[in-house]
């Protein structure tokens, strides 16, 4: 079985079968990356396509100094930023991904991830309402189960920066989830507070239920 690097290089050299296998390996995580960050379901397929296409046509050719996984995610990141810029309502030049969130995009829709339970659903939705930068790292953590150091390696950022984003992001996430849950009185017991542990639990359930293993 060939390594990722071997497959990628073979594919870039014209080997279609190699590309096929590479897609098989990374289709799911890349799809998950975009799933909760777009305006409509069709956009997911489009952005996934652009990401993989970027492998073979991108200007930043793979130099073999990072993992294929990192490479793919960085392309996906760029694709995402371009997508958001195109759709940001206020049309400003300098989009601050530390403040803009997906839900503010033109024609933004609710998430296309449908969860069974209300809590999980509010988690999903709240992720769209925090800054994109935070959403990226949180989703990679929640949906892919990556650790802080793995994230740092993946995104090519210092671990300290990653931890900072994670902490800040979680805080904001808890607040958003609490707000969303509070808007609908439920018949079950009122939740006192949304703790980080609860978030983890819900995220885990979500992963299982969505089949993200």
């Amino acid at each position: 079985m060939r390594s990722d690097v071997e497959l990628l290089q073979a594919w870039q050299g014209g080997d279609r079968e190699a590309g096929n296998q590479l897609v098989d390996r990374y289709f799911d995580p890349i799809t998950r990356f975009f799933r909760n960050k777009v305006c409509s379901e069709d956009d997911v397929a489009e952005l996934v396509g652009q990401t993989f296409l970027g492998c073979t046509t991108g200007k930043d050719r793979f130099r073999g100094d990072a993992s294929v996984r990192q490479y793919l995610y960085s392309i996906a990141h760029n694709v995402l930023h371009k997508y958001i810029r195109a759709r940001y309502k206020r049309q400003s030049e300098n989009l601050d991904f530390a403040s803009v969130c997906v839900q503010e995009l033109a024609a933004a829709s609710p998430s296309s991830i449908i969860a069974h339970k209300r809590e999980a659903q509010s988690l999903v939705q709240a992720l769209r309402e925090i800054p994109v930068e935070d959403q990226v790292v949180l989703e990679l953590m929640y949906f892919e189960g990556l650790s802080g150091s793995e994230l740092a390696g993946l995104l090519g950022l210092p671990e300290g920066t990653i931890r900072g984003r994670l902490a800040r992001g979680k805080q904001r996430l808890r607040e958003r989830v609490a707000l969303l849950l509070a808007q609908a009185p439920t018949q079950s017991a009122q939740l006192a507070a949304v703790t980080p542990e609860l978030l983890d639990v819900w995220a885990l359930e979500l992963r299982r239920q969505q089949g993200w293993a």
């Binding site: 609710p110 969860a115 969303l180 808007q183 609908a184």
Partner: peptide, 20 residues
């Protein structure tokens, strides 16, 4: 509860509402 609009999302008139 009947009478409540869906609280989970900020509905956009263009697209379908999703509810828990």
């Amino acid at each position: 509860r009947t009478g409540d609009p869906n609280p989970l999302v900020r509905p956009n008139p263009d697209l379908p509402l999703r509810t828990g």
